[in-house]
């Protein structure tokens, strides 16, 4: 049955997904759509994607976020050689709950045991929770609104929702949305404190490029609808690959994977997929990703 929802409210408008990438170290496109053909590199090998320059002092989560962004933009490996068209005015919204906890913890330990002089000036910006979003903006020249979200298990789709508000309210034409978590010992220990049994945290990033129709140069035919909040478990999503616990990155990683699946014809019958993230403490969010021109199959929204 085709969707009959009226779209007179701006909040209901679908937005274009102009690019995507998933970057979970060790995984390939066969494991997780949107990944590279060869296993995605870890943060220490981020130079393979980004080039050598500009990575000194960058934390693992910033490196993974940059790798996902770089690949979603469809850029060749290496540092940018000329300014990116479409960068001015583009917004950046990043979801990460634990991106900087190891740095904060290390800085505090150092200050307590050895004094403030031992804190590296390169670590100082890394202690700020917006460092990932600002690093992406600086590297690619994105001068629009710049936000970091750390709202727990729903952070990934919270970031998508915030990007939608920015775009629909006319605050930006294009938005780069990134979800990322590290898997260092501090992050893992903190993630293990979550209720239930979320599974061991894994490192990974996802990126989607959202925009108003025509705002990005590429028309992929993939669109994303409004983000819906659920106070009870909305049930399993459409074939969301079980790749491990991605916490605040999950929403964006799975959205990028769904876009890749729909675009790549990996699932010929699916014209739309529902992506979800969340847990019992933080509630759940879902969003529908659709391939343009295709009719939604009944029940596909689960």
């Amino acid at each position: 049955m085709p969707e009959t929802r009226t779209q007179d409210r701006a909040a209901d408008q679908p937005l274009s997904v102009a690019g995507w990438a998933t970057h979970v170290p060790g995984l390939t496109a066969a494991d997780l759509p949107g990944s590279p053909v060869e296993p995605a590199c870890g943060p220490d090998d981020a130079k393979d994607v980004l080039g050598r320059k500009g990575l000194l002092g960058k934390e693992p989560s910033t490196r993974l976020a940059l790798c996902a962004t770089h690949r979603a933009l469809g850029l060749p490996p290496g540092k940018l050689t000329e300014p990116l068209p479409y960068a001015p005015g583009t917004a950046v919204v990043v979801a990460s709950n634990l991106g900087n906890v190891e740095t904060v913890s290390t800085v505090l330990d150092d200050m307590r045991s050895r004094g403030g002089n031992v804190v590296s000036p390169l670590d100082a910006p890394n202690a700020s929770s917006n460092v990932i979003a600002s690093s992406i903006a600086i590297r690619y020249g994105f001068t629009g609104p710049n936000l970091a979200v750390c709202s727990g298990a729903t952070a990934g789709l919270d970031a998508v929702r915030l990007a939608r508000v920015l775009l629909l309210a006319g605050r930006a034409e294009r938005a780069v949305v990134v979800g990322v978590e590290p898997a260092d010992p501090v992050a893992r220990a903190l993630a293990a404190l979550r209720p239930g049994d979320p599974g061991e945290l894994i490192a990974g990033a996802g990126c989607v490029l959202l925009g108003r129709p025509g705002a990005w140069p590429t028309d992929t035919g993939i669109t994303v609808g409004p983000v819906t909040r659920h106070t009870s478990d909305p049930g399993p999503a459409d074939g969301q690959p079980a790749v491990g616990e991605l916490y605040g990155a999950a929403g964006v990683v799975h959205l990028a994977a769904a876009a890749a699946r729909l675009a790549g014809g990996a699932d010929d019958d699916a014209a739309g997929l529902t992506v979800r993230c969340g847990d019992a403490d933080d509630a759940w969010l879902t969003v529908d990703v659709t391939r343009a021109g295709a009719r939604r199959e009944a029940g596909a929204a689960a």
Binding site: R9, A10, A11, D12, R161, R164, V165, L166, L168, A169, R171, P226
Partner: peptide, 11 residues
């Protein structure tokens, strides 16, 4: 401003 945008867009 944020609240204004949420209401303006119907969010």
């Amino acid at each position: 401003g944020y609240a204004y945008d949420l209401i303006r867009t119907g969010e």
